[in-house]
Design a binder for these strands. Structure first.
Lengths: 188, 188
DNA sequence: AGTATATAATCGAACGATCGTTCTACTGGT
DNA sequence: ACCAGTAGAACGATCGTTCGATTATATACT
């Protein structure tokens, strides 16, 4: 286990845990054991308790996602490069398919009450970003919507499938398949 | 709320709850409130408690999935009809995208310890069933694997996306898109 | 048909365990 | 001497579970 020596390390570790166990499944005992800090010590860093920890995780995830996945889309490179860079960012962000997506695990059950609006906005923002660059290639709106949804859905589904089967290689196959499908559909 | 008058009604209701809240997020209090039965009464029907209830739900889901999704694939109709019937079964099974998949919500956190092997087998059996009928169309194994995974991944991802965004219409779009993609890839 | 009996099903109350949380005291470094 | 950081112990609340007693339903007998 990586020794925790800074606040950043701590949030990183919390992120791993919340992604694996979800919100309801993550107990203070689990957090304490996996970080090496006592329950009380966790409250020193996060006076707001479990919910504040989850919020810190969500913010970290948002920053990483923006940097690794969204920012490649906002450059002025050509379409194929943008998609390719996004997919590489996806692969890093989801740790080759081994890390679950918060859009999935934080949208289940009572957790919805806390995170639903943020999750909805994040998913729609991702979708809109894709629609935009696809429309820039001269694709009409309806088709751009379908293709954007197809990309996101493939990624989310690949994470679920990999987790269910334990076959994480399928995640890589899906990323390659996305690149193939999209470039074929756009650059016909 | 539908009044519960039989054991079948009870399991149906439990299924709704476990699919929505996941295993960790489903408390006996929630089960009691949503079924109208006291906690002690639930133990009369399921002496094994929460885990036995979840198992009953899993078995019910397995039966429904086999009937609605897998059995259409095992007929001797032509390929396109089989896929079309499966997709109609999918739409019923997942209630037009409004019911989460147990392959997703039961594969998170501590729930894995109970259901992982069953979930893995179910996902791989579904995949193998698809591979079989695709290979019957003369497609080579590697390509059949990719297409099969693509179908399952699209469905699982569409459920996650619909739940995250609240846009359940996207689930229908995905099912139509699957039919289109597959028939285009097979019947070239 | 009406009554007695047995069984099926329900519930309230309480159990120990764990939940998230708080308090107080004790480190270790500056 | 100070203070950021840690941890043990305990808090009330809720967790899943069990028990005892009560009500409803069905069966049996006269």
């Amino acid at each position: 286990m990586v020794k925790i020596v800074s606040y950043k390390d701590l949030v990183d570790k919390l992120t791993d845990i919340f992604c694996e166990y979800g919100y309801d499944g993550t107990s203070l005992t689990i957090l304490s054991q996996n970080t090496g800090l006592g329950r009380a010590s966790l409250y020193y860093h996060f006076p707001g308790g479990k919910e504040e920890m989850a919020n810190a995780v969500y913010e970290k995830i948002t920053r990483d996602f923006t940097k690794l996945v969204l920012s490649p889309l906002a450059t002025d490179q050509n379409f194929q490069i943008k998609i390719k860079n996004m997919l590489e960012g996806i692969n890093l962000f989801y740790n080759s398919g081994q890390r679950s997506c918060l859009l999935d695990v934080f949208a289940i059950g009572s957790t919805k009450d806390i995170f639903y609006s943020q999750i909805k906005n994040a998913a729609l923002y991702w979708k809109d970003s894709l629609i935009k660059i696809i429309e820039d290639e001269g694709i009409d709106n309806n088709r751009a919507i379908l293709l954007s949804e197809e990309i996101i859905i493939s990624i989310e589904g690949a994470l679920v499938f990999a987790r269910a089967t334990g076959d994480y290689e399928s995640f890589n196959r899906t990323l390659e398949n996305i690149l193939l499908t999209i470039t074929k559909n756009i650059l016909n």
